[in-house]
Design a protein around this nucleic acid. Structure first.
Lengths: 237, 237
DNA sequence: CGGTTGTTTGAACTGATTCAATCTGTGTGG
DNA sequence: CCACACAGATTGAATCAGTTCAAACAACCG
């Protein structure tokens, strides 16, 4: 099967991304020209620890980043993902979450201070930021439903659908290069990796997906959307 | 035991609340003078259905409101709470969540349009809004850890601690008038009401709480914080 | 008083975890 | 090219936390 390069692999540009979502050119330019460094982050290495200051704006150009927390006994929960074209806004005080790469990622990092200055000069950015955080809140809420109310099969199915959608892949036609290990899927869906493995086997046995290593093709896209009760509306912002 | 009136019962004023969190007076005044109506919402009656337009700003003066969603099979999950002094911002398109009162609530409702106008005239509000949504995101993340990684006892304990904190109650000294039914606690923590009931009985048996109807006193505040691995930092915004 | 809403309890069941072992693929250095 | 190490995937068996279903009980309200 021929597969387009997903955004996760190609890398996306900041200014172009901002204009695409409707930001006016001068504001997008100002953000693009903000002082920043480009950082390559390796998966599962510590990048930003929970509790450290988070006085930076970040923009993901390629790869996938995640925010994670852990409960008292050290069990890890991934609470948010950032795909290429998405960003991480600064937190006022020290953040309660850590940052890591899911897959090798290339990100732009600027200072919160510079960012605040640009926003002040271009107030139109506020509306854009507002949409951004709204979308993130929607996704958080959907994840909460996922962890709180769906069984393990539905949770994994839902994550697969969401991942395909956020990678810009049409599950009905294209296959998905899964960026996660089963342990990471467990950390997102609140399970153990052992069970995630069994769910995958079961999804394949039921003819919903086919696997070749980490390549997932959706043998029955509509059915897997149903199983995961995936309604993509919440992703539209 | 003598108990202070919690904020949930007294009602709080918009302008005063805004000034208290650092908004400048003219902006707070402008928001306070925005055209609005005051609505009384009864618990568990439909108030705003999922999928309906959400072109309103709301401010909770008393009671507690919740955002809820349901998965495919109709199992309900409460994804966010709004205590007095907190607000609900408009969503750009139709919201994927519904709104309901947890306890009888009194809320102020204004139009998104008027709100946008005021924000435009007082750009300083943006910083305030930004802190607001950051705090909400933090809480969402914490809830995700709660549902995804903690066992049922810890989930309930954590919710009790969070609720006390958000009601402005010091668990070590004051008792908490629990605003939730056990079913609602189940909807927040992703369980069944049957199990929530057992958890309560167990918490009481272990000497962590004492109950008189819905009045909860924390017999061992430090220990219940530990059991729920409650670190209140995430509430500070 | 009767109706409604919420709480409590029991018994049977099941989905997911835990622990442990094995297998597979990939990369590294000799 | 092989040996080795390592990370991730897979499988099995025992156990347990939480669900489901059903019924009883308590409190409240018009």
């Amino acid at each position: 099967m021929i597969r387009d390069m997903s955004r996760a692999e190609t890398g996306v540009e900041l200014e172009e991304t901002l204009v695409k979502v409707g930001m006016d050119l001068s504001a997008a330019k100002a953000l693009g020209e903000m002082p920043h460094k480009v950082v390559h982050v390796d998966p599962r290495r510590p990048f930003r620890e929970p509790g450290s200051p988070r006085d930076e704006v970040m923009f993901v150009r390629s790869g996938i980043m995640c925010k994670y927390k852990s409960d008292g006994s050290g069990r890890r929960q991934i609470v948010a993902l950032r795909f290429p074209g998405e960003g991480i806004l600064p937190s006022p005080s020290n953040a309660d979450y850590g940052l890591q790469a899911i897959a090798r990622s290339e990100i732009m990092v600027g200072s919160a201070e510079d960012f605040a200055k640009v926003v002040e000069e271009h107030p139109s950015i506020n509306g854009f930021l507002y949409k951004l955080v709204q979308r993130e809140a929607s996704i958080s809420h959907e994840w909460l439903v996922n962890c709180g109310r769906r069984d393990s099969t539905a949770r994994v199915a839902h994550l697969l659908c969401e991942t395909a959608a956020r990678c810009g892949i049409d599950g009905a036609k294209q296959s998905l290069r899964l960026p996660f290990t089963q342990q990471q899927i467990a950390d997102i869906t609140g399970q153990t990796s052992v069970n995630v493995n069994r769910v995958f086997a079961e999804l394949e046995r039921q003819g919903l997906i086919e696997r070749e290593g980490r390549n997932i093709s959706f043998a029955d896209w509509n059915e897997i959307k149903r199983v995961g009760s995936f309604q993509p509306d919440y992703l539209l912002s």
